[in-house]
Computed example of a mutant assay.
Amino acid sequence: MSLSHDAAETLALDALGWLVTNDEVLPVFLGATGASVEDLRVRAGEADFLGSVLEFLTMDDTWVVAFCDQKGCGYDQPLMAAHVLLGTARMHWT
């Protein structure tokens, strides 16, 4: 099953919402990315930024589970959405 661009963007916006309300994970994201709270507001409409939010989320299985359980979506959805939003720009580590 694949996601449309709109569905991927919606999931990424949900992930951003989850991130900004998570007092433990938000500082990790800000520290790892160098983004500011203002960047979160300004760049929320940019596919590459939303893709980076999803990539960050998928770095930790506990974050994925917490987000997906709250959202009620499959655990594979954040990674699939990141692929849709980032396409060939997505970094591959293997």
Rank of each mutant, 00 (worst) to 15 (best):
D61G: 02
M1I: 10
V53S: 00
T10R: 15
A82W: 02
F29R: 05
Y75T: 14
L30K: 01
W63L: 01
A35H: 14
L86Y: 05
C73S: 14
D60E: 10
D61P: 05
C73L: 13
L86F: 01
A35R: 15
T21D: 11
A15V: 09
R90G: 08
G74D: 14
M91Q: 04
V20H: 06
M59Y: 01
V20D: 08
A89P: 05
G45T: 02
C68W: 07
G31W: 13
K71A: 15
M59L: 00
H83K: 13
A7M: 11
E24S: 14
F67R: 03
A44S: 14
D23Q: 13
S52T: 12
L19K: 08
A47V: 07
F67P: 05
T88H: 13
F49E: 00
A89L: 13
L85N: 05
L11C: 07
M1R: 10
D39P: 05
T21W: 03
V53I: 14
M59A: 01
T88S: 14
N22F: 03
V25T: 06
L86S: 02
N22A: 09
H92F: 05
S52G: 11
W18V: 09
R90A: 14
A47L: 09
Q77G: 05
D60Y: 06
L3D: 09
D23W: 07
M1G: 15
D76I: 07
H83L: 10
C68Y: 03
M80Q: 13
H92C: 00
F29H: 01
M80V: 11
M80P: 05
G17K: 03
D39V: 04
L54S: 03
L13N: 08
D69H: 09
G74M: 04
L79I: 04
L54C: 07
V64Y: 02
E46H: 10
F67E: 02
F67W: 04
V64C: 04
E46G: 05
T94R: 07
M59P: 03
R43E: 11
T58E: 05
T94M: 04
L40K: 00
W63K: 00
A7E: 15
L11Y: 09
A44H: 10
T88Q: 12
Q70W: 06
R41K: 06
L26M: 08
L40T: 07
D69I: 00
Q77L: 13
E24N: 12
V53G: 06
A47M: 03
Q70M: 09
G45Y: 06
S4E: 12
F56Q: 05
L13R: 15
R90M: 15
L16D: 03
A7T: 14
D69M: 07
L50F: 04
A89Y: 08
V42N: 11
D61W: 01
G74R: 08
A47P: 11
E24F: 12
H5G: 02
E55H: 02
